[in-house]
C-alpha cells in the first residue's frame, strides 16, 4: 500500500502527473500534493461531506477514492469552479445570506448545490434539504444555506444574471 504509483488526471482543467504512495486518497492528493486546500477533510469516512469534489461530472467524496483510481479522470474542486465563475451567483447568494460561519463545510456545500442546480427544474426546499443530507454543518443550522441555494435556483430559473442578489432587510 505504500508503493509509489503514477497518477495522471485533469484537475480544474489542467493535466497533472505525480508519483505518490498508492494509499494516497484523492483528498490528500488534492490537498497535499496539489495544494488545493479548498477541499477539506472532516471525517475521512464519507460522512461529513467537506471533501466533495466533482469527478467526471459527478459529486463524490474525495476521501473515499484513492488518487490512483481517479487516474484518467477529470476532477474539479471549489478552486476550479470559482475560477470558471460557474458558481459565482451561488457564492454571492451564500455571502449575502451569510450562509456560512466558519466556512469549513462550505466548499462541500457548494459542490452539492452546484450538482443539484445542474439538474433540470427548480428544487423545492425539501429537495434541497435532501440533497444536503450528506453535508454536515455545525455552525449555521442549515436554514441560511437552504435559503441561499433556493434563491440561486429561483434566480437561475427566472433567467437572472449570475450576480443576482438577494434582498436583505436592513
Amino acid at each position: 500500500m505504500s508503493d509509489l504509483v503514477d497518477v495522471s488526471l485533469i484537475v480544474n482543467g489542467s493535466e497533472v502527473s505525480h508519483r505518490v504512495p498508492a494509499r494516497t486518497t484523492l483528498a490528500d492528493f488534492l490537498r497535499q500534493t496539489l495544494e488545493l486546500t479548498g477541499t477539506h477533510t472532516g471525517c475521512e469516512m464519507g460522512v461529513c461531506g467537506a471533501c466533495l469534489v466533482v469527478l467526471d461530472g459527478q459529486v463524490v467524496h474525495a476521501c473515499l477514492s484513492f488518487a490512483v483510481q481517479a487516474s484518467g479522470s477529470a476532477v474539479e474542486t471549489v478552486e476550479g469552479l470559482t475560477e470558471r465563475a460557474v458558481i459565482a451567483d451561488l457564492q454571492e447568494a451564500f455571502h449575502q445570506r451569510n450562509a456560512l460561519q466558519c466556512g469549513f463545510c462550505t466548499p462541500g456545500m457548494l459542490m452539492t448545490a452546484y450538482s443539484l442546480l445542474s439538474q433540470p427544474g427548480v428544487p423545492s426546499r425539501e429537495d434541497i434539504r435532501d440533497a444536503l443530507s450528506g453535508n454536515y454543518c455545525r455552525c449555521t443550522g442549515y436554514e441560511a444555506i437552504v435559503d441561499a441555494i433556493e434563491t440561486t435556483a429561483r434566480n437561475r430559473a427566472a433567467g437572472g444574471d449570475a450576480a443576482a442578489r438577494e434582498e436583505i432587510d436592513a
Binding site: 479548498g38 477541499t39 477539506h40 474542486t77 455571502h95 451569510n98 456560512l100 466556512g103 469549513f104 466548499p107
Partner: peptide, 18 residues
C-alpha cells in the same frame, strides 16, 4: 454581509490543517 466570508466561499480559507 461579512467581508471575510468571500475568501472562505472561494475555497481560500487558511485553516491550521492547510
Amino acid at each position: 454581509p461579512r467581508p471575510n466570508a468571500k475568501r472562505l466561499l472561494a475555497g481560500r480559507g487558511r485553516y491550521v490543517t492547510d
